[in-house]
């Protein structure tokens, strides 16, 4: 088992009232799964994804990731955990504008203090795998949306995470580009990477092996 959420609640205070963003979420994810989270706007999809990614905190409940109890961990350990095991893919790609494709891919490795030769090898592998060797010296602004998302995925994968979290990865793409990205996710999943994606589209959700539906913060 990769991770487990038990009775997760998250709320915010507004005018003396608790407004629940998430109510009693229970979720078990095994390694190698491909999960879609669906639901209308404001149903808590992104909040749930952020909690799984340890970027956000919850108010009540238990969260176990591998052997660690996330709810008991200090901020610093938590961030070490996600840095080690989780890769993020964003709707708006969030590439670093000042860096080339090559350098964007290299960035996570720099933070993880890989040696220069290791970095070179890993980045070359990734460029090769996604067929973007010819684009390695271009800046994000010189790429199409689909190509940018490709780089985003490659960057999320480069430090070999156990889990990829994707927040509407095709939201800013046209249908053809979106399909290509989903195909890549499918391939990756086959290779053994666990993927959790948030999506609005039934069609994209269908790529996953399991779908979780949310409404007003509750699982339905």
């Amino acid at each position: 088992m990769l991770l487990e959420l038990n009775h997760i609640y998250k709320w915010v205070q507004s005018g003396g009232q608790k407004i629940f963003l998430l109510k009693d979420i229970n979720l078990k994810v095994e390694e190698g799964e491909f999960i879609s989270i669906m639901g209308p706007s404001g149903s808590g999809k992104s909040t749930l994804l952020n909690i799984i990614g340890m970027l956000d905190v919850f108010n009540e409940g238990e969260y176990n990731f591998l052997e660690d109890s996330v709810h008991n961990l200090k901020e610093k350990h938590r961030s070490n955990l996600y840095k080690q095991y989780i890769g993020f893919v964003f709707q708006a790609y969030h590439l670093l504008d000042e860096l080339t494709v090559y350098e964007n891919l290299e960035m996570p490795l720099l933070y993880k203090k890989y040696s220069s030769s290791e970095r070179k090898a890993l980045v070359a592998d990734m460029l090769d795998k996604f067929n973007i060797v010819g684009k390695q010296n271009l800046f994000p602004s010189q790429l199409s949306g689909g190509q940018q998302q490709l780089v985003g995925i490659a960057r999320a994968l480069i430090s070999n995470p156990k889990l990829i979290l994707a927040d509407e990865p095709t939201g800013n793409l046209n249908s053809k580009q979106g399909e290509e990205i989903m195909e890549i996710f499918k391939e990756l999943n086959k290779e053994g990477v666990t993927i959790i994606q948030v999506t609005h589209s039934e069609k994209n959700a269908a790529y996953a092996s399991r779908t979780i539906n949310l409404l007003d913060g509750r699982q339905v």
Binding site: L55, F88, Y111
Partner: peptide
Amino acid sequence: AKDVGINKTLGASSKS
């Protein structure tokens, strides 16, 4: 804010 956020998800520490 965006830059900092991206870098942190990529593994940057506050110190760096």
